[in-house]
Design a binder for these strands. Structure first.
Lengths: 267, 267
DNA sequence: AATTCTGTCACCCGTATAATCACAAAAATG
DNA sequence: CATTTTTGTGATTATACGGGTGACAGAATT
């Protein structure tokens, strides 16, 4: 990666982490200056000199830079190691506070009527993976998991699959030979197979370039199907649970036919 | 904690974590509703109904809520466990990206002239603790640490002190008997003592209510002194290094007199 | 058929933040 | 010592974003 690119990247990320633009630019500036005055920083980062002071003060308050009160003042950034550690701590504290606050109010409001057909949509790679892991951890009899893209095979996922107790039957599918080999190499106690999932993309219908993400069926009563969007590359999923759930019923059908047929066990 | 308090707290923290107010309120609302429509959410959270949709979309994109595309749409939040996990992952990823970006540009700009007296100021409890730990980890001969307030005795700090290799002499001071006992109970391989640090607050000068935070001297060549501000309760520190550093020189003097005198070892 | 509900848009407005300017004290220069 | 540059603070303007409100068409309900 190019230096200027990297700097922009860093500024961007710092802003996502809650810093203002000037603050971010100043911090990045100090990262390559080791130590500097307001003027030097202003020249390097193109932050208006008179605004550098405010930005630095904010950064100092957050424990990210140090100030030497000489004349002219000198600024320098905390070592990268310390900075990331500080940010991390800050964040952990926040997440904990959130967790505490929310658990004290998890008082559920009226659990009323019919648990009808519910199909939920979710998006985002991280959230979907977490949900998938959650589901697998709760499996009591059977887990069927088909992976459509190697980018989805993370350490967490593999660890989770390997942690499934012995009493639970695990069927692990892949859409390509390579991927299946990869899976078999990293997983024990599971039956792996290759599955052409043509039926998923819609047999003969319009058939756009939506790539298959993953397909997870747990105890034949909860299903999660995800796709990789062609344009953005983001992952989108739908998810249903309950034995009577329409989506789950359809999924059971399809699995029985398309998956298990030429292959292995269970009706 | 009261429910409404907890909700406000949660909203606040969520905003610190990067969510907009409406998004935060909606998420908190869904946390106690298990599932709900836009109208229900609007009534509960006082977010304008027409704005609930935008907020939910953002939340969905971040993997924090699920949408059921029925009519009316139903929304529900991801289980708290998953939500915090997702947020944590997101954050880790950002910090990593930051780390990568900054290391690629850590090309130091001109390391020029005289390494004169440098005294740096920093503030914020987390940052100061991190710096203190850093310093102690680099100790090769001697660590002198005086604690002025029990709130500063964290697990990390204790762990760090206990991890100091045997070859390094450790002098651990406290400003009260109780605190010294506490320290001795949790630390091994260190000489503990009680030190009235009157001299730190300025003998007879104005003497405001600045509480002593910590005092750290490593290898007699780096020093960190912190105070607890009377009004805000925040921690502020100054820090100097280099054997010739003025601050360090003074510190050595003071230590030799005020600390070691009536007590223990080393000149 | 009438009414309520649902979802989308377009718009206003206040605040926060980016961006400039004015200025006095301090430092540097000759 | 006089002049010029640098430094730090404060005030001011411009702008973008997010909070807040209303209009409206289609769907659902009565």
């Amino acid at each position: 990666m190019n230096d200027t690119q990297a700097m922009e990247e860093a500024v961007e990320v710092l802003q996502q982490l809650g810093l203002k633009e000037y603050e971010a630019r100043c911090f990045v500036g100090l990262s390559r200056l080791r130590a500097g005055t307001a003027k030097q920083l202003a020249d390097l980062t193109e932050v208006p000199r008179t605004r550098v002071y405010d930005a630095i003060r904010m950064l100092e308050a957050q424990g990210l830079v140090e100030i030497q009160h000489s004349s002219p003042q000198q600024f320098r950034s905390v070592p990268l190691q310390e900075a990331t550690e500080t940010l991390r701590d800050q964040y952990e504290a926040r997440v904990d506070r959130l967790h505490d606050a929310l658990t004290t109010i998890e008082v559920v409001e009226k659990e009323d009527d019919a648990p009808i057909q519910q199909v939920w949509a979710m998006s985002g790679y991280v959230a979907i993976e977490n949900r998938a892991i959650d589901l697998m951890e709760e499996a009591r009899e059977e887990v069927v998991l088909v992976i459509g893209d190697e980018s989805l095979v993370t350490d967490e996922l593999l660890a989770c699959v390997n942690d499934i107790p012995a009493g639970v039957e695990v069927l692990l599918g892949a859409v390509s030979n390579d991927l299946e080999r990869e899976l078999r190499r990293n997983v024990s106690g599971a039956t792996t197979f290759v599955s052409g999932l043509e039926w998923l993309v819609g047999e003969g219908v319009e058939h756009r370039e939506v790539a298959i993400g993953r397909l997870l069926l747990v105890d034949r009563s909860a299903i999660l199907v995800s796709s990789i969007m062609p344009d953005t590359g983001s992952e989108q999923a739908i998810f249903g649970e309950g034995f009577g759930n329409g989506l789950v019923v359809i999924a059971r059908r399809l699995m029985a036919q398309g998956l298990v047929r030429g292959k292995d066990p269970a009706s």
